[in-house]
C-alpha cells in the first residue's frame, strides 16, 4: 500500500530525514518509536502533504501513485489520514461545519453522494457517542477551548467519519486518560482490516498493548535504526534509546 524509499527531507537548509525506507502492506499495523526530535512528526507531515518540508531525495508511492505529487486534500480523498500530534484550533468555525464540509468534500472526490444536514448530524452523533464525546462538542469551534484529550478524540472522530485507508496516528495517546485511551484504541481498532493499514507513532508501549502492531521501528537521527515485532516496543520501554547513540540525559 505504502512504499517509502530512501526518503530524505529538510526544513529550510536543515536535513531532518536522512534515508527512510519503509514498506507497509494492506492489513498491517506499523509502529514507529523514537526519541524526541528524531523526525517522526516530520515524516507524518510529509506523508500528509504539509508545506515547508523539502523532499531532497527518495520517493513515496501510495497504491502505485506518487503520493508526494498530490495536494493534501487529494491525499485525504484517496484515504490518507493523519491524526495530528497537535490538533489545530480554528476559531469561528464550528466543529459540525468543519466535519460536514470535510466529509462531503471527501465523498465528492470519491464519487459518493453528499450528505444533507440531517443525514450528517445523525452520523456525527452516532460516532460521537461511540467515542464518548458529547453533541455539544459539535457546536463548539474546532478544538477551541478543548482539553488536550478532547482534541485528540476530536481527531479520532474525524478519522471515524472520513473512513481512511491509511491512518497515521502521531502520538494520539499523549494527553489521553486511561479510559479515553481505551475508547480511542477501540475506535482505531474498528478501522483495522485487510484493506487498511496504519502507522502508529508513539512513545509508549501502553498504546501498543491496545493497538497491537505487526511491526515496530525505531526512528533516530532521521533514519530507521532497527525494526522488529511487537516485542521490540517492550524492549525499548525497558532499555531506552541508548543503544542507538542517543544520550538519554539530553
Amino acid at each position: 500500500m505504502l512504499e517509502i524509499v530512501n526518503l530524505h527531507a529538510s526544513v529550510g537548509d536543515r536535513p531532518i530525514l536522512k534515508g527512510i525506507d519503509l514498506s507497509i502492506k494492506a492489513g498491517d499495523v506499523h509502529a514507529i518509536m523514537g526519541p524526541n526530535g528524531s523526525g517522526k512528526s516530520t515524516l507524518s507531515y510529509i506523508l500528509a502533504g504539509r508545506d515547508g518540508y523539502t523532499v531532497t531525495d527518495g520517493s513515496v508511492t501510495y497504491n502505485g501513485e506518487d503520493l508526494l505529487a498530490l495536494p493534501p486534500e487529494r491525499r485525504a480523498a484517496t484515504g490518507v489520514f493523519l491524526a495530528f500530534q497537535y490538533p489545530v484550533e480554528i476559531p469561528g468555525v464550528s466543529n459540525s461545519t468543519f466535519l460536514k464540509t470535510a466529509l462531503n468534500a471527501v465523498r465528492r472526490q470519491r464519487g459518493e453522494s453528499e450528505l444533507d444536514a440531517i443525514q450528517f448530524l445523525k452520523l456525527a452523533r452516532a460516532k460521537c457517542k461511540q467515542l464518548g464525546m458529547t453533541d455539544e462538542m459539535l457546536k463548539r469551534a474546532v478544538n477551541v477551548g478543548f482539553s488536550g484529550g478532547e482534541k485528540k478524540r476530536n481527531d479520532i472522530l474525524q478519522m471515524a467519519l472520513l473512513d481512511p485507508k491509511l491512518t497515521i496516528l502521531d502520538e494520539t495517546d499523549s494527553g489521553l486518560d486511561i479510559d479515553a485511551l481505551r475508547i480511542v484504541a477501540d475506535g482505531v481498532n474498528s478501522l483495522r482490516g485487510p484493506n487498511r493499514a496504519m502507522l502508529v507513532i508513539t512513545h509508549y508501549q501502553r498504546l501498543l498493548s491496545y493497538i497491537v502492531p505487526d511491526y515496530v521501528h525505531v526512528l533516530a537521527f532521521g533514519r530507521i535504526q532497527r525494526s522488529g515485532g511487537k516485542e521490540l516496543a517492550l524492549e525499548l520501554e525497558a532499555r531506552g534509546y541508548a543503544e542507538f547513540g542517543v544520550n538519554e540525559a539530553a
Binding site: G49, E73, A76, L82, V88, I90, A102, V142, L162
Partner: peptide, 27 residues
C-alpha cells in the same frame, strides 16, 4: 490566513479555495 489552520482543513479533504473561504467567513 493561518497556515496551520489551512493545512488542517486541507488534510481533511477540503480544497484550498474552500478552506480559505471557511477561514475568511470565520474571521
Amino acid at each position: 490566513l493561518d497556515d496551520d489552520a489551512m493545512f488542517y482543513l486541507r488534510a481533511r479533504g477540503i480544497d484550498q479555495d474552500s478552506a480559505r473561504s471557511l477561514l475568511i467567513d470565520a474571521y
